[in-house]
Write a protein that binds this DNA or RNA. Structure first.
Length: 526
RNA sequence: GGCCCCUUCGUCUAGUCAGGUCCAGGACAUCGGAUUUUCAGUCCGAGAACAGGGGUUCGAAUCCCCUAGGGGUCACCA
């Protein structure tokens, strides 16, 4: 008889920094997916959100809010954590100082950690010397050589000290990583990590280990840059009397077109990244219209960018899910539900994956097309409202229908905002090329007078308009393109947009005819 | 520099654990064609990769060894 499949508990522990990094979101997604997969297709799974706020953020709401918003936007809920609580709280590290202090005392009392009185400078000098000599640096442990009386005197004098974990030398620590298989380290090469500062506050490696054990985390899924922290955490967990969790070190996300970790530090550089450039430029066009500043917090490195510019959460989920993971040799489209069903750690790849804005955009096309009409209307409507453009919902619906697949981002609706304006402005270049061109005004005049003017309101439909235009062009032995272009520019002012017959329909018979007259008068003046 | 990780088309990846069906499959991007002419979309097509070298084997992208390259990490940050 095999043991029952264990239930799974995963966690994600963001620092409240005021914005959610897209790479961090990918790590969070994998944790969430692993837990949900086991809940629905295994013995159970729980996803925990824990807040790493040891830095004591000045304003927690401001710093944590956007992060929780990103989770909510993508539809990733958490079973335990902020707002929802849970049996393993508190879920803010700033509220767990007692727990850390107790664990620290336990290690100290057992002789598994020690007070180190060496100054920062002295330790740095040791490290430099080792570096220079090309030998591995390990802690010199001078404080362990101290006699009891010496130590007592130092403490009585109030000499500052840090607490270091005493790494057992001469051992091999190994993990069976879910994505990297077996990884081993020689503990003789590991420095004794500081686990508590002079002020008594504990450090990341220690807090995480204590919390993961206290919260019964079974699977630690994190980016591979944490791989080198792992031996210390394994040793620490054992010293504390716990069995270490299973680890899965997933590849980190690289900046588009590079092999370097996508980092919020480099946002400035990314503006010039040829692959990222388009995304920045689109933001430059859109954000000013909706009263948003293009800041680091809404750059393409952050989840907020995608929401702000009108991506579908499903598109972002799909792209993130495929970053370092695949099901097989052909499936590309995954809903969140599909991912919950199909996601397993053993299909995570080992090598870093670059975020590809083009591919993300392609997923967006797909998921925008899957979006019901009503939802598109409300999404686009929200953009129009932010841009302070008055609109009629029915008309917006018709416009969205006419745009069809052309509507990729919800913000694209702003590109055709001229449909909501009473007055149009001609794109001067397009006007010259399409309307004020030899032979065109006469042709357009004739078509309008002979075919359009006499059309009844009820016959002013895309199908009828197309039939008229086609047959007129045929009779005149001219390319339909001439009228198509001329009419579009004359009635909307723009060179691009929905199909021209839809444009005429949207603008309406009366207004279209008036605009053709105005355009022709304009062309005559030119 | 020490330790650790990684290496298939430009990119994301399938195939590697169980060597032959892989002169390497899919997707995005690119280019070309069609839809007899906006833009877009759709359809069709093209080019494009096993880092290098040695082994093992009848046979290697797949196993072994070496080399090279890339990356991560070496804080009283997380």
């Amino acid at each position: 008889m095999s043991a029952p499949a264990p239930t799974v508990r995963t966690r994600f522990a963001p620092s409240p920094t005021g914005s959610m990094h897209i790479g961090g979101m990918r790590t969070a997604l994998f944790n969430w997916l692993h837990a949900r997969h086991h809940r629905e297709h295994g013995a159970g799974g729980t996803f925990v959100l824990r807040v790493d706020d040891t830095d004591r953020a000045r304003n927690l709401d401001e710093a944590l809010g956007p992060i929780l918003d990103a989770f909510r936007w993508l539809g990733l809920d958490w079973d335990e954590g902020p707002e929802v609580g849970g049996p393993h709280g508190p879920y803010f590290q700033s509220e767990r100082t007692e727990i850390y202090a107790t664990a620290l005392d336990k290690l100290l009392a057992a002789g598994l950690a020690y007070k180190d009185f060496d100054s920062r400078e002295r330790v740095a000098a040791d490290r430099d010397a080792a570096q220079k000599a090309g030998t591995p640096y390990v802690t010199v442990r001078r404080s362990l050589e101290l006699s009891d009386t010496e130590r007592e005197r130092l403490e009585a004098d109030g000499t500052p000290f840090v607490v270091r974990f005493l790494v057992p030398r001469g051992e091999t620590v190994a993990i069976d990583d879910a994505v990297r298989d077996r990884v081993e380290w020689d503990t003789s090469l590991l420095p004794d990590p500081v686990i508590a500062r002079q002020d008594g506050s504990v450090l990341y490696n220690f807090a995480t280990t204590v919390d993961d054990a206290a919260m019964a985390i079974t699977d630690v899924i994190r980016a591979e840059e944490h791989l080198s922290n792992t031996p210390v955490q394994v040793l620490l967990a054992r010293a504390l009397g716990h069995e270490p969790p299973r680890y899965a070190h997933i590849p980190f996300v690289t900046a588009p077109g590079t092999t370097k970790k996508l980092s919020k530090r480099d946002i400035g550089k990314y503006r010039n990244n040829p692959v990222f450039k388009k995304m920045f430029e689109r933001a430059d066009e859109i954000f000013p219209q909706i009263g948003l500043d293009v800041t680091d917090a809404v750059s393409p490195v952050m989840v907020a960018y995608y929401e702000s510019i009108g991506y579908r959460p499903a598109a972002v989920i799909n792209a993130l899910g495929r970053l370092g993971w695949s099901l097989d040799d052909k499936t590309e489209i995954f809903s969140l539900g599909d991912l919950v069903r199909d996601f397993t750690l053993d299909r995570v790849v080992k090598n870093p994956a670059g975020l590809d804005p083009d591919k993300l955009f392609n997923f967006q096309s797909h998921w925008m097309n899957e979006t019901p009409r009503d939802e598109k209307v409300s999404l686009c409507g929200a953009f129009l409202e932010k841009a302070k453009i008055a609109f009629d919902a029915d008309f917006l619906g018709r416009l969205i229908d006419a745009m069809g697949d052309r509507l990729k981002l919800a913000a694209d609706i702003l590109d055709v905002a001229y449909f909501f304006a009473d007055e149009i402005e001609y794109d001067p270049k397009a006007f010259k090329k399409r309307v004020a061109k030899a032979g065109v005004p006469e042709h357009l005049r004739a078509f309008t007078d002979e075919r359009l003017a006499s059309l009844a309101d009820a016959d002013w439909t895309p199908a009828r308009l197309e039939a008229e235009l086609t047959s007129f062009s045929e009779a005149a032995e001219k390319s339909p393109g001439l009228l198509i272009h001329a009419l579009r520019v004359a009635t909307t002012g723009a060179a691009v947009g929905p199909g021209v017959y839809d444009c005429l329909d949207l603008v309406g018979r009366e207004k279209s005819l008036a605009r053709v007259d105005a355009a022709l008068a304009n062309a005559a003046d030119a």
